Amino acid sequence: MAGPPMLKSENGRLAGYVFVDVADRDLGSVVTDLQAAMAEQLKLPPGYSLEWSGQYEYLARATERLKWVVPAALAIIFLLIYLVFRDAAEASIIMLSLPLALVGGLWLIWILGHAISVATLIGFIALAGVAAEFGVIMLLYLRQAWHERLKRNPSADADDLDDAIREGAVLRVRPKAMTVAVILAGLFPLFIGDGPGSEVMQRIAAPMLGGMVTAPLLSMLIIPAAYRLLCRRRIARSRSTPVTT
């Protein structure tokens, strides 16, 4: 007679387990599809219940934590940037450039066929911190070049601003290239490793590797352009403000 090899119980109730192996898809989407299909096709008799456990349970817990960890991390990054510049507009420039800097990580994950998991989200959080660092240093160079130009010529105009931005951006190219080279040299061995835990490390390193292509380029293109628009608006506002005596 066919039957279970042993009786199992949980919380004082008989329990049966169905094991599902997932391949070529992320665990979250598979469980979501299974839940939708079972809700539509399965009707449990009275006294029966259904629970999803195993790795999905750990994934659900991690997802709930990340719902407040990610906003908290972004808020801390914004606060630290604001404390550096003491200017909400300049801090907003860096924060608004972060999504563009993360594009490279998304592209590399898509090319590799990796699913969005907790490990990849941790990689994106780390990438956001590095991209914010790139933006802070770039903006510091731009501010320094522009303020020095204002010290020499308090009536500097938009043409002087363009010269100062070019000067500050060029000074940042070599340090940024060195930073990117060091990060790539440190992450690439993790990305190609095949030892124990390599799958997790690869999914953490992939967003960082992809982001090291777009984050430096965007910080050298987007942030100077945004800072130029901000300073030109301030120049126009100061010129239009009447001087009272």
Rank of each mutant, 00 (worst) to 15 (best):
C231M: 15
I223V: 15
M208D: 10
G211P: 02
M178E: 04
I183P: 00
L184F: 10
M201H: 09
P196Q: 13
V180P: 07
G193Y: 06
L187Y: 13
T214L: 07
G211W: 00
R233H: 09
R233K: 08
A181M: 14
L190S: 08
V200W: 12
V213W: 04
V180T: 11
A181Q: 11
M212D: 06
S219T: 13
L190H: 04
I183E: 04
R232I: 12
G210W: 08
G195Y: 09
G211H: 00
A205Q: 05
L230K: 05
V180N: 09
T179W: 04
M212N: 12
F191N: 06
L218N: 06
G186W: 11
L217D: 04
G186E: 06
R234H: 11
L184K: 03
T214C: 00
G193K: 01
V200A: 12
L217A: 15
L187S: 08
A215V: 11
G186H: 02
I192N: 06
I222Q: 08
A226E: 09
P196N: 05
M201F: 13
S198D: 06
I223G: 00
P224L: 02
L218W: 07
R203K: 14
I183N: 05
L230Q: 09
F188Y: 14
G211V: 02
L190T: 10
G210C: 01
I183T: 14
I222H: 07
A215S: 14
E199L: 12
P224V: 08
Y227W: 02
M208P: 10
G197I: 11
L187P: 01
M220N: 02
L190I: 08
A205H: 04
L209K: 03
G193F: 03
P216C: 05
C231P: 00
